[in-house]
Computed example of a mutant assay.
Amino acid sequence: MAVLAGAVLPDAPVPLGPESVVRRHLSLVGVHNYEPRHLTAALAFLEETRDRFPWQDLVAEPVPLEEIGALLTSSPGTKPRYAVTAH
């Protein structure tokens, strides 16, 4: 599953192969309605629990936004979450 949050302005298209999405039973979800306080609370939670939970072990190294299509259709990596950078 991929969750796209906060991408509310026009940007470059993201190439995505529909055949891979269907065969791998992938889900793509857009999340729009959140407020800055929700992001602040989420970051505070991560900061407060960083010594209790191995958050860094859950997220792969960031990849550039233009590679998101390949990321979504490639074989899963060793980490359950991906990170994407705008650059």
Rank of each mutant, 00 (worst) to 15 (best):
L16R: 00
G17T: 06
E66C: 03
L43F: 12
V8F: 02
V31T: 06
H38A: 14
A5Q: 09
E35F: 06
S27K: 04
K79T: 13
T49A: 01
L72R: 01
N33M: 12
V8N: 07
D57E: 14
E48M: 08
A2I: 15
L28K: 01
Q56E: 08
L28M: 08
P36E: 10
Y82K: 13
L39A: 12
P10A: 08
R23Q: 08
R50N: 15
E61L: 07
V29L: 09
P62A: 14
E19C: 07
P80A: 10
F45E: 07
R23K: 12
G6F: 01
E47H: 14
S74L: 11
P76H: 11
P36I: 11
V8A: 14
A5P: 03
L26A: 06
L4E: 02
Y82H: 11
D11V: 02
P10K: 11
G69E: 00
P62R: 03
A60P: 03
V59T: 11
L43S: 05
S74V: 13
P62V: 10
P62W: 04
V8R: 03
V63W: 02
P18L: 15
V63N: 04
P36G: 10
L65N: 05
A86Q: 11
G30F: 02
I68M: 13
E48F: 02
F53R: 03
E61Y: 02
A86I: 08
P64K: 05
V29C: 03
A60I: 08
A83V: 08
R81V: 07
L16P: 00
H25E: 15
F45D: 04
V63F: 00
V22L: 14
A86E: 12
Y34I: 09
P15H: 05
T73C: 10
T78E: 10
L71W: 01
A60M: 07
L16S: 04
W55T: 04
Y34C: 10
P13K: 06
V63Y: 01
D11G: 10
F45L: 10
A2T: 15
D57I: 08
A41W: 00
A41M: 02
R50G: 04
L65P: 00
V63K: 04
S74A: 15
E67L: 09
A2P: 01
P64A: 13
L46T: 11
P36Y: 06
R24L: 06
T78H: 04
L9H: 05
H38V: 08
S75P: 03
E19D: 07
V31N: 01
V31P: 00
V31W: 02
S20F: 07
L28R: 04
L65T: 13
E48I: 02
G30S: 06
D57A: 13
E19V: 15
L46V: 15
A7T: 05
I68V: 15
R81Q: 10
